[in-house]
Design a protein around this nucleic acid. Structure first.
Lengths: 177, 177
DNA sequence: CGGATATTGACATCATGATGTCAATTTTGG
DNA sequence: CCAAAATTGACATCATGATGTCAATATCCG
């Protein structure tokens, strides 16, 4: 039997819980897909629409991607999809000629509200009978993990490899083909 | 202000914690990618290799996909990648002529062990100073959510739409293009 | 035994996430 | 003001997840 690498008890728990975490994440995203499907939304679109809804002042695409902790490029693509679906519009940004502001349309607002209305009974059913204290602890631990795992605690920036230099080939991803 | 759909306090917590859950999931998968990159692994390949390692008796691809809670088709693709990388082999299954058994190779074992060895200090660092009780509760809640969100509690099967009949177009997924 | 049904591997398509790159624009530093 | 650096939108590529489909095979049931 190979000697296990030394892990603290806490690290053992994190390790063993990871797989369940992945499965729950997939299951929730899947449930979101099903809930919002007939509204023309997917889980991802719902998420991004939510980021726009929550933003108190109109944001640029890059700003929203920072809020979401996602990469700029994919957020841009989905926002363009939502613009095509007339749930968002891009309005001129007086502060930046190239970076328009993302604004919710009436249809976008209605769709988001409808999705959240569908989500309510789902969330009620899923948490039915679960201990409130446990859920609060769960919330606290998740938030703590998010903070600790953030690329640089305190900096919300997306480190985008300033590619120009081509300093390293970065052959990280295997390309078996 | 639009009237919020009625949610129990527990459902409110689940709703508000979802975004952090997604972010933590992405961050962990990303950390896994970085940890295992130079071993020729990705987060997904690591996961699937782990499923093979944990299986006491050799499984078929479909069996492994059930273990992983993932869909058969994508697991098959990744397993073929791992076979190409010589980390897995497909051996004849006396019970089923078309469904070979997935077996770990020496290289696969070594790669998996190396990945777990890299993961240990990472897990130690991430959980450094976190309360053990909180982590245990976290583990319990995640497991409970996984059970509750499972397609059918108790049935491990993947409901695959028996397509033949073409009874309904199932126009769930939006196709904006 | 023999047909109906389910399982399994394989292939295809689309949505998404990660990453690299580039040009246009803004910001910064002198 | 001007040049260097950073930001931003856009485009491209690859890995992955979800889904549909099909043929081969296995299992079930009469």
């Amino acid at each position: 039997m190979p000697p296990k690498p030394a892990r603290t008890p806490a690290a053992e728990i994190l390790t063993s819980v990871t797989m369940d975490l992945f499965r729950v994440d997939h299951l929730i995203l899947n449930a979101g897909d099903r809930l919002a499907a007939h509204l023309g939304l997917t889980g991802t679109r719902w998420q991004i629409l939510g980021a726009v809804v929550r933003s108190t002042t109109p944001q640029t695409v890059a700003g929203l991607s920072r809020d979401l902790g996602s990469n700029r490029q994919n957020v841009q693509r989905v926002i363009h999809d939502l613009v095509r679906l007339e749930m968002l519009t891009l309005e001129p940004n007086p502060k930046h000629r190239r970076a328009p502001l993302v604004v919710l349309t009436g249809k976008g607002r209605q769709t988001y509200d409808a999705a959240m209305k569908l989500q309510a009974p789902w969330a009620n059913a899923v948490t039915q009978g679960m201990g409130l204290d446990d859920l609060l602890t769960f919330q606290r631990v998740i938030a703590e993990l998010r903070t600790r795992l953030a690329p640089r605690p305190g900096l919300t920036e997306n480190i985008e490899v300033r590619g120009k230099g081509k300093t390293g080939p970065a052959t990280a991803t295997t390309n078996p083909g």
